[in-house]
Amino acid sequence: MSSTQNLFTIQFWGVRGSIACPGPETVRYGGNTPCIEMQVDGKRLIFDGGTGLRVLGQSMLSQMPVEAHLFFTHSHWDHIQGVPFFIPAFIKGNCFHIYGAPAPNGATIEKRLTDQMLHPNFPVPIRIMQADLKFNDLELGEKVEIGEITVENALLNHPGEAVGYRVNWRGYSAAYITDTEHFPDTLDKNVLQLAHNADVMIYDATYTDEEYHSKASSKVGWGHSTWQEAVKVAKAANVKKLVIFHHDPLHNDDFLDHVGEQACEQFPNTLMAREGQIIHLGGSAAGHLVAPEEVKLTV
């Protein structure tokens, strides 16, 4: 049996929203845009292809050939801009199963990834990639079975639409809910469905409530949520661990430290997503988290 079988781990390769923001003030949390890798029972699942996907790709070069399943929430730039720089996709012998729900205009995930690499946007077309790219159009609510793993999806509240995902395996579950805006008077039933009793919920908490409702620069209608709403969902859905994700590029390390302190006061089992973190759910390593500094914490 492979050493990765009988395990469920989540690793964060990109945790920022909107635009990559490298620099001295974002070192601790990271500046790459969304990309999360889940290794479940020997299978590799990747969620979103922001600039973090480039870094993940570099780490995969020592593991060739590779096979992975890539699930896209939507195709706004910050979630796909790492695809043209994902080196394993250019290497023959690798295989990537790519999933995404059609956009409101009917464009498939294949068309959208293809279009971003057309002139004048990019120097080489997607067909230069030598890996076997298998595109799959998802229906809303469709379940994808990968061995013993089930991946569910549900529609989120985001301009141009986005979907959230839930990964289930042998009683463990992880919900990936990013790029969604909460409703003013009620919790989103689709979000609650994805998060229900989840071991881990990764949630779009781009703003604070103060920023979201700011009279000077309101973020209502921008398609993102707040850490305060994340706490409400975590409590209502009986989530075991809440991960604050999709950090605003204007929020530096110190600001995110403060958000984390406030969130933990309201929901003690809260984690601020950082590049490099690994959460272990299933198998012999279950029950702890490995931070970038290799410090093990209790989940």
Rank of each mutant, 00 (worst) to 15 (best):
L250H: 15
K215E: 15
F267S: 09
P184K: 07
A68F: 01
W77G: 08
S214E: 09
E161I: 02
I244E: 03
Q116Y: 08
K43S: 12
L45T: 04
S214G: 05
T270P: 04
H258L: 15
K92P: 08
L242H: 13
L271V: 10
N94K: 04
D204T: 05
R54E: 12
P88I: 01
V243L: 11
D254N: 13
S173D: 05
N121Y: 11
Q63V: 06
T108N: 03
T206D: 07
P159G: 06
G160L: 00
L297A: 11
L271Y: 05
S173H: 08
I36G: 00
V15A: 06
Q116K: 10
A162Q: 05
N238R: 15
D48S: 10
N157W: 08
G100D: 03
I177D: 01
D115V: 02
L281R: 07
C95R: 02
T178C: 04
T298Q: 13
K232A: 13
L256Q: 04
D137T: 06
S59H: 14
P24G: 11
I278T: 14
D254W: 12
C264R: 13
Q277P: 03
T150M: 12
H76Y: 11
D253L: 14
F255Y: 13
Q193S: 06
Y29D: 05
E161N: 08
K189D: 04
F96D: 01
E294P: 05
E265P: 02
V239E: 01
L61P: 07
F135H: 02
